[in-house]
Design a protein around this nucleic acid. Structure first.
Lengths: 155, 155
DNA sequence: TATTGTTATACTCTATAACTATA
DNA sequence: TATAGTTATAGAGTATAACAATA
């Protein structure tokens, strides 16, 4: 535990500075992600969905849950990816109500290109020593260990 | 300098893990920001713009530059804030073409509430020791010191 | 009846291009 | 003529509600 850490009410200067820095990192990360997506003629939402499908095919419903949006939105995003031949809908033999979205070969190719053009969050790490990277890893793990993870339980 | 750090081509496992953790932090940060904004009946864009205005009044043009979007978009966002009495447009005595957007008293009140409800990026830091926070600060500074900052020069 | 995916609708954000009023 | 802000337009993401097919 910290000596005199940021109490919930009145964060100290160091904490405030770190909060600001995290905000900057988040902003940079997002800019670069959108930029990389645009470089492959994808919107951010399309890029995120396609990246998910490259890990595993998913029913529309689960896709919505993963993207934390309404199922009705997924219809349009998959439509646009499908019209470009990057994704496809497959029937689920077990339940004929379900449609499973999957990345096509071309979709996986585009997603790979996208992944490789995401240099931020990786390139700046090259400026760190191995020890710093390990330190950062441990700190980030601690940060992410705060509540909030509970909601992720249901899948 | 690192001993055998992530070369541009083939990042090591540690780097990949840290990249993933950063992605998670970014996702959490964004979710909580949007959620906090929605809690005050603001969209993310409105919340970001209003927060900027609370630091200082800004001409529409500069606002667009800060938000990294086209000036035509700012018109609508400020319109919506203005219709709720959270922001206002003031003439610039020096240049009658310019309209300076500013937060109203109510706007600053809402922004303060928003800021205080943004517990993430601050609350998880409470789990860190002072030394860890200093360490994190230095690492984040190093990360943000990577190129890319050049584009920020023009203001 | 409940669930899956879709459609219809409405709002916001986004970029582009054309317009206006200044400079 | 160049610039600041706006309008008009179109595409995309988002949530809500209603719907068809299936369970």
């Amino acid at each position: 535990m910290a000596a005199t850490p940021s109490s919930p009410g009145r964060p100290d200067d160091l904490t405030l500075e770190v909060v600001g820095l995290i905000g900057s990192v988040v902003a940079r990360y997002h800019e670069e992600y959108e930029e990389a997506a645009a470089g492959h003629d994808l919107t951010g939402a399309q890029a995120r969905l396609l990246s998910l499908l490259c890990l595993e095919p998913l029913p529309m419903r689960k896709l919505a849950h993963r993207l934390k949006c309404e199922p009705s939105n997924v219809t349009g995003i998959v439509d646009r990816l499908e019209s470009r031949g990057l994704a496809e809908r497959r029937p689920d033999p077990a339940d004929r109500r379900v449609k499973v979205a999957a990345a096509t070969r071309e979709g996986r190719r585009v997603a790979r290109g996208l992944r490789e053009s995401l240099r931020f969050a990786r390139e700046p790490l090259a400026a760190l020593t191995d020890e710093e990277r390990r330190s950062l890893r441990d700190i980030l793990r601690t940060m992410l260990d705060t509540e909030g993870t509970a909601a992720e339980g249901r899948e």
